[in-house]
Amino acid sequence: MDLGIAGKTALVFGAAGGLGSGIARALAAEGARIAVADINADALSQTVADIEAAGATALPLQWDLSDLSVIESRMQAIDDTFGGVDILVNNTGGPPPTPAAGQSVELWSKSFESMVLSVIAITDKVLPGMRHRKWGRVITSTSSGVVAPIAGLGISNALRMSLVGWSKTLAREVGRDGITTNIVLPGRIATPRITFLDEQKAKREGRSVDEVSAESVATIPVGRYGDPREYAAVVTFLASVQAAYVTGSVIRVDGGLIASI
């Protein structure tokens, strides 16, 4: 299937590893030009090397999403290199594991700026160009915690939920401009973030990481953690021409983990 995104420009956040790196590679394999952004500039080099080895073009951008002041300069760099962004993949890092109660206002504020406000501000920067071209894709990766809140991830559950309401509202506002906006929920995908969460849970409960991971896998109907490439394939389809009638949706990529309908 030709996804129809060859020559399109994609901006992918969190692209130094995990889900973001997989998404960037998958989009590049379809012929898209990729601006890869991450707070860790050194770690971006491997993603860029992989994309270029596949014959695609990548622009690495060191980008701290908690610093809203850099948005203008980073967007200008993309415009200068590729032109406007056609596909935006909002893939932010998560806050530290915490209960919902008793967290400092400073931590809530910092997490809100990097996880929510940055996503909204960056999307607002790319929308005028998408509207002018009558084509665009805004794909925001959140967490299964927006459907079934995850114990110990109080800040993540609360703030990621706000992105679901924002994305759904935005879909109605931009649909007639040829722009789709969707939320994608990863279940337990084998990334450094999941490894970290398993390690933290093991530490809190005085158990081994292997025991915690095995317990987690036992709750997943397909019986394993997901592969980042499987998640990236769904995101890449949502970015395609063929997915033009999918908008305002919340797509689960979780191996059946979320028990609710």
Rank of each mutant, 00 (worst) to 15 (best):
S73D: 08
T9P: 00
V48N: 06
V250S: 14
P60S: 03
G17P: 05
I120N: 01
V70H: 11
A56Q: 15
I122C: 02
P97W: 02
T169C: 02
V164Y: 01
L61P: 00
V212F: 10
V222W: 12
H132I: 00
L185R: 05
V12E: 11
K8R: 15
A32Y: 12
W135P: 08
K125Y: 07
S114R: 05
Y225Q: 03
I150S: 05
S240L: 10
E215N: 04
S66D: 05
F237W: 13
R133M: 09
S109C: 06
E215D: 12
A158R: 10
W63N: 07
R224K: 14
P96Y: 09
T98Q: 15
L117V: 03
G152Q: 12
W108S: 07
I251T: 15
G165T: 13
K110P: 02
P186N: 11
T191E: 12
D67W: 08
A32I: 06
T57K: 10
A121Q: 11
V235G: 13
T180A: 11
M130P: 12
P228K: 13
A58E: 03
L185M: 05
P186I: 07
I179L: 09
V85T: 14
N90I: 09
I5G: 12
A259C: 02
P192M: 08
P228D: 04
R176I: 12
D254C: 12
S73F: 08
P228L: 11
V89A: 07
R252Y: 01
G84V: 07
A243Y: 10
I5V: 14
G187D: 00
F237S: 09
S109P: 03
G4E: 13
K201G: 15
E230M: 13
K203D: 15
L238M: 06
